[in-house]
Simulated assay, not measured.
Amino acid sequence: MATNRSQRLRKKLCVDEFQEVGFELNLDFKQDLDDDAIDAFLDAFLTEAMDANNLNYVGGEDFGLVCLKKRGSVNEEQRAVVEGWLKARSELTEVTVSPLIDVWYPEKPINPVA
């Protein structure tokens, strides 16, 4: 693929200066939780951790990707806030929060901040 791309194409492909960064979540729920408790947890998660930090969650109840609600990148502070919120919850036995990754091309490294 060509490496000399126009700014418009770089933006459309979400590469170079238009790279979008987010992180993955793996959640392990306690064995004795019923479906209502999991639903209540997910409602609180979406309201208190995602909406409150201008983030969006894509995935299921135990695995997903967190990205910014609008075009752009999640920062390390937002990642830490979500991780702290999740680790404080009693419904979970284990929480794994990935380092920041490129949400469109996860195999590519993150561009250094200029």
Score class of each variant (00 low, 15 high):
residue 42 L to Q: 10
residue 42 L to P: 00
residue 43 D to Q: 13
residue 44 A to N: 11
residue 44 A to P: 07
residue 44 A to V: 05
residue 45 F to Y: 13
residue 45 F to E: 14
residue 47 T to H: 10
residue 48 E to Y: 06
residue 48 E to V: 00
residue 48 E to K: 06
residue 48 E to R: 05
residue 49 A to W: 00
residue 52 A to N: 13
residue 52 A to I: 11
residue 52 A to M: 10
residue 52 A to H: 12
residue 54 N to T: 00
residue 54 N to L: 09
residue 55 L to A: 02
residue 55 L to M: 07
residue 55 L to Q: 04
residue 57 Y to W: 08
residue 58 V to G: 03
residue 59 G to W: 02
residue 59 G to Q: 13
residue 60 G to V: 09
residue 61 E to P: 05
residue 62 D to K: 12
residue 62 D to P: 00
residue 63 F to P: 00
residue 63 F to N: 10
residue 63 F to V: 08
residue 63 F to L: 04
residue 64 G to K: 02
residue 64 G to I: 01
residue 64 G to C: 05
residue 65 L to V: 08
residue 65 L to I: 11
residue 66 V to T: 10
residue 68 L to E: 14
residue 68 L to N: 07
residue 69 K to S: 15
residue 70 K to R: 13
residue 71 R to C: 03
residue 71 R to D: 11
residue 72 G to C: 05
residue 72 G to K: 11
residue 73 S to M: 11
residue 73 S to Q: 06
residue 73 S to P: 05
residue 74 V to M: 15
residue 74 V to D: 02
residue 74 V to Y: 11
residue 75 N to E: 05
residue 75 N to G: 06
residue 76 E to T: 08
residue 76 E to L: 09
residue 77 E to Q: 12
residue 78 Q to F: 01
residue 80 A to K: 15
residue 81 V to N: 10
residue 81 V to F: 15
residue 82 V to S: 05
residue 82 V to K: 04
residue 83 E to I: 01
residue 85 W to K: 06
residue 85 W to Q: 07
residue 85 W to C: 03
residue 86 L to S: 01
residue 86 L to C: 01
residue 87 K to W: 03
residue 87 K to H: 06
residue 87 K to S: 09
residue 88 A to W: 02
residue 88 A to G: 14
residue 88 A to P: 08
residue 89 R to P: 00
residue 90 S to T: 14
residue 91 E to K: 12
residue 94 E to M: 11
residue 95 V to S: 08
residue 97 V to C: 07
